[in-house]
Design a protein around this nucleic acid. Structure first.
Length: 994
DNA sequence: CTAGGGTTAG
């Protein structure tokens, strides 16, 4: 099989190399640099190219190419366009069939940085581009330079920020940069003996092409530029890459199957250095990769060596990697890769992605020195099959100090997964041959790799098989049915685990049924697994049934069920269950606390949350990170940011979630500067973030209308190549919209693969806030026509307020009528009614507004009546105005403004006497606006407070500050009062924590 | 075995 594949690859190699000369039968080429015959070569200088690096030579170069093209069709032979020594500044030049760019060793084609000179379609932004052409090439020993740094934002490792962002306003982020050299739908391509330098984006891009030979090409891209891939072979077949030297910031050789398969790719005798993956298969690839050979390749100082990251479906098979020398190391964790010499995965990008398959890989004669191990992870739906590792020499040692070395990077599959490093990390593999593999560890103690081979559970099943042959659930179930009574703990455990990971409802039910049928009495552990299984499958009732039937329960069973209720939003049931748990005498653990505290984030739950905190103080879990983030989040959500911060500062350990929780705590309370300050602080401390952090930071930036910083953060987010998260996009939309940058927000909105109601709302609110009534109405119309997402209260509020401020009064009323009845009915609140009154008032329909107030199911607020009173004055509805003013004065008798409007209205209507009377009234009552009073007290109520007639104990500031000894004493003291609520009883009735 | 942070309005 493999021999055959090798043969195929070699055949491809010779075929592609010969194809050019076979078509150029008339070629009698002269020496490249001293052309004697003008017939077969044309110099760009003949068409007026200056080559001074200043003046744009786009037109002369194109004329030379076109002239050459004419020669090609006339004489049916190839024609060379010669670039003599010099610097030729240019925007896109289009290479035609039969034309070869022949660049002198001392000549450079320089990509211009003015994007307006490039073609209209961004898809054609290349410095050199061939489309639908045959027999094309670039040769001659010269250079094509994309001047990437003039376009690109760079990542500054030291400062951990992006710098020098360039864009034109017509485009955003990645799209603002031309690629360097492109061949689209071409055949017989030869790129040989050229230097491709500093691309602004991808460097050499071959798309939907056939028979390409790339040899003796040097590629250099700035190490800190994003997306400057070396060679991208997209939907193209029969490609040979040989004797190339690639030193660039992003993936060096990157086959992509975006719209079609990639067959027969050979890369040999090359040298690669990259801050990303040296060889990467599977960046947004959906189709087949087959018959690839990589031989005699040296990879140095890269962030990942050989990477097969099949995250979007597609089948990969028959690959050989032979004679490869790899060194991989850590760089900043925001770059792809974690120093794995070999990385193979089929983890889908996100829940909606198809799982691809990978089979028949041969790694032979591989030497690697790396800071991390080999990572082989299939996924539930995409097992890796038939992997062979022969004759490998692996050395593991660390020589850099970048963090997060113990975390593998599987975006979209399970997010970041912490694990001990291993020589080979393996998961979901079927068929593995390892022969003559030597692994050595450096003596450095810090590595502590005592697990050369780590088989994750799924792999163990497949390899050692208990019940299951080949890991197939249906076969395992068949076996289970056959064995009946014989099935015991271990088998049930494996089966249930598989059912849980695959969310296989029917299968899990059969396992459960088998237990019942055979009168098997599952131990607490297995019953708990059943609970988890039912919860994961959304069958809460069944989970509860298993729980209720349990003869004994442990903390895990309780916590699992509480969490199940919590996830489904059944807050009170969850709280009730927790109280039952306490009554039963089961001590909560850190998992329970982390779960239960999240139940207290609503206003109703806060009192309860404080009591949990009391309980926590006595437990050993007060300073646990997970518990701490829940706790601080609870305080923050209750508006108590100081307490939240206090909890945060006292956590002995911080992580992304706790840091994000405190940032978003500030942001949600409108303390945007504080949120940003913390974010910057964490950044300086090299804390790692994730999309949730960025979402919260964007909220803060949006609140401050800080577009510039928002844009920088956006650039940074793009660079991270995160999988799609709607919430993150929604925050971006909100940020740009609030700042009035609708080109950006709308572009993000339009490009979203899946929108949520918040996406629409963020857009609508933006338009509304900027008084763009027409846009509001149009977008809302689109939302209704698309009919995918149901509008909610916020949608209605945004639309109504947008219409009222954007001169679309009638439309607003119409939409209100639509949404306050019918199938997509929205719960109407007093705010909505206020908007409607405003709409009617503004359009002069004072009587209708008045009628509406009478009929609406709320008592009108002063603001609503005030807006109507204003309209009465403006449109001189004195009778209604008098009634409204009276109502208003009942609510706010001391509001002088009401009298003033009333008096003015009388005056406008010529009722001078009434006007004077009202003015007298103002004077007589000597109305002065009273200054506000309030009672300011400590946030933490001292000692006890009355609550529902019961006494409950609340932690107060002094308690938080106390040392352990005093804390206990105080609590003990508290516990002497025994008339507490049910919970308080639990807390204090024991001297120690259970 | 069980656990924490997230978008839109006011």
């Amino acid at each position: 099989m493999f021999q055959l594949q090798l043969l195929l690859s070699i055949l491809t190699l010779s075929f592609a190399a010969q194809s050019y000369s076979s078509t150029s039968q008339f070629s009698i080429l002269q020496s490249n640099h001293h052309p004697k015959s003008n017939l077969l070569s044309i110099s760009v200088t003949e068409f007026g190219a200056a080559g001074d690096g200043v003046k744009y030579d786009t037109i002369p170069i194109q004329k030379a190419i076109d002239a050459c093209s004419t020669i090609v069709s006339k004489h049916r032979c190839p024609c060379h366009v010669i670039f003599p020594p010099g610097k030729y500044l240019t925007a896109t030049v289009f290479v035609k069939s039969g034309v070869v760019l022949d660049i002198h060793q001392k000549a450079t084609i320089l990509g211009g940085s003015k994007l307006e000179d490039y073609p209209k379609e961004q898809s054609r932004w290349y410095v050199v581009l061939a489309e639908d052409a045959v027999d094309v090439g670039i040769i001659g020993g010269g250079e094509i330079n994309g001047q990437g740094l003039k376009f690109v934002e760079r990542f500054d490792d030291k400062k951990n920020v992006m710098v020098s962002w360039n864009h034109t306003g017509a485009c955003l982020g990645d799209e603002c940069r031309p690629r360097l050299v492109g061949f689209i739908s071409c055949r017989n391509i030869k790129v040989s003996d050229v230097r491709l330098i500093e691309p602004a984006y991808w460097c050499l891009h071959v798309v939907r092409s056939d028979k390409t030979s790339i040899c003796d090409v040097t590629i250099y891209g700035n190490f800190n530029s994003p997306n400057n891939d070396g060679i991208d072979i997209e939907d193209s077949n029969n490609t040979v890459i040989t004797r190339c030297n690639i030193n660039t910031g992003d993936d060096a050789i990157c086959p992509k199957s975006s719209n079609g398969p990639v067959y027969n790719l050979t890369a040999t005798d090359s040298w690669i250095r990259t801050k990303s993956s040296a060889i990467k298969l599977g960046s947004a690839s959906f189709y087949t990769f087959k018959n690839f050979l990589f031989d005699n390749i040296t990879i140095v100082e890269s962030h990942r060596g050989l990477a097969l990251q099949i995250r979007d479906g597609g089948n990969v098979s028959d690959m050989i990697f032979s004679n490869i020398n790899i060194s991989t190391r850590y760089y900043h964790p925001s770059w792809w890769g974690r120093a794995e010499p070999i990385y193979v995965t089929t983890c889908p990008r996100d829940a909606s992605s198809k799982a691809g398959s990978i089979s028949n890989l041969l790694f032979v004669n591989i030497t690697a020195t790396s800071e991390n191990g080999i990572f082989l992870s299939g996924s539930g739906g995409g097992v890796l099959s038939n992997l062979k590792f022969l004759n490998m020499n692996l050395t593991y040692k660390r020589w850099t100090k970048f963090p997060d070395g113990l975390v593998d990077y599987r975006p979209g599959c399970q997010e970041l997964v912490k694990h001990q490093p291993a020589g080979f990390m393996m998961e979901h593999i079927d068929g593995l041959v390892v022969e003559d593999v030597v692994m050595k560890w450096s003596s450095d103690e810090s590595m502590r790799w005592n697990n050369p081979l780590d088989f994750r559970p799924s792999t163990r099943q497949l390899l050692y098989g208990c019940l299951s042959c080949n890991g197939s659930l249906s076969e395992a179930l068949f076996e289970m049915a056959k064995q009946g009574l014989q099935v015991k703990f271990k088998e049930y455990d494996i089966l249930l685990n598989e059912c849980i990971t695959q969310r296989a409802i029917r299968e899990g039910q059969r396992v459960h049924a088998n237990m019942i049928k055979t009168h098997y009495q599952p131990p607490v552990y297995l019953r708990t697994r059943l609970i988890v299984f039912y919860i994961k499958c959304g069958l809460l009732g069944d989970a509860r049934w298993v729980f209720d039937e349990m003869p004994q329960r442990n903390v895990v069973s309780w916590t699992a069920l509480i969490s199940g209720y919590s996830q489904k939003g059944h807050i009170s049931q969850a709280i009730h269950l927790f109280l039952q748990m306490l009554t039963s005498g089961t001590a909560p653990n850190e998992f329970t606390f982390a779960t239960v505290l999240t139940l207290c984030t609503s206003a109703i739950g806060f009192q309860f949350g404080r009591q949990i905190h009391c309980l926590l103080v006595k437990s050993p879990f007060e300073s646990h990170v997970y518990v701490g983030s829940s706790l601080l989040d609870m305080y923050a959500k209750a508006g108590k940011v100081h307490e939240a911060r206090y909890v945060f500062e006292n956590l002995p350990e911080r992580d992304v979630v706790s840091c994000t929780a405190i940032i978003s705590g500030y942001a949600q309370q409108g303390l945007f500067e504080e949120a940003l300050e913390l974010f910057c602080k964490f950044q300086a401390e090299r804390m790692s973030f994730n999309y949730v952090t960025y979402t919260s930071v964007l909220t803060a930036l949006s609140g401050l209308a800080a577009v510039e910083q928002g844009r920088q953060l956006h650039a940074h987010i793009i660079r991270l190549e995160l999988p799609f998260y709607a919430v993150l996009h929604n925050s971006l939309i909100d940020m740009y919209s609030k700042c009035g940058k609708f080109t950006y927000s709308r572009m993000i909105f339009n490009q979203m693969s899946e929108r949520t109601v918040s996406s629409w709302n963020a857009m609508l609110v933006g338009y509304s806030k900027h008084g763009m009534g027409k846009e509001v109405v149009e977008l809302f119309k689109m939302m209704r026509e698309e009919d995918k997402i149901k509008p909610d209260e916020i949608t209605l509020l945004a639309v109504l307020s947008g219409c009222s401020h954007g001169g679309m009064e009638d439309k607003g009323v119409e939409i209100f009528n639509d949404l306050s009845s019918g199938k997509d009915r929205v719960e109407v609140s007093i705010e909505h009614c206020g908007c409607v009154v405003d709409l009617l008032s503004r359009s002069g329909q004072v009587e209708r507004a008045f009628q509406f107030i009478k009929e609406m199911p709320f008592e009108p607020t002063a603001a609503i009546l005030g807006s109507l009173l204003g309209a009465c004055w403006a449109h001189l509805y004195v009778d209604i105005g008098e009634i409204v003013a009276r109502q208003l004065l009942e609510i706010e008798p001391e509001n002088a403004g009401t009298y003033v409007i009333l008096s003015n209205m009388y005056a406008s209507a010529g009722r001078w006497e009434d006007a004077r009377r009202v003015r007298e009234l103002i004077k007589a009552r000597a109305m002065v606006k009273e200054s506000g009073k309030s009672w300011i007290g400590p946030d933490f109520i001292h000692d006890t407070e009355k609550h529902n007639g019961m006494r409950t104990y609340i932690p107060h500031q002094s308690l938080l500050n106390m040392d352990e000894q005093r804390k206990k004493k105080t609590l003990l003291h508290c516990s002497q009062g025994r008339a507490q609520t049910q919970l308080s009883l639990m807390i204090y009735s024991h001297g120690n924590y259970w």
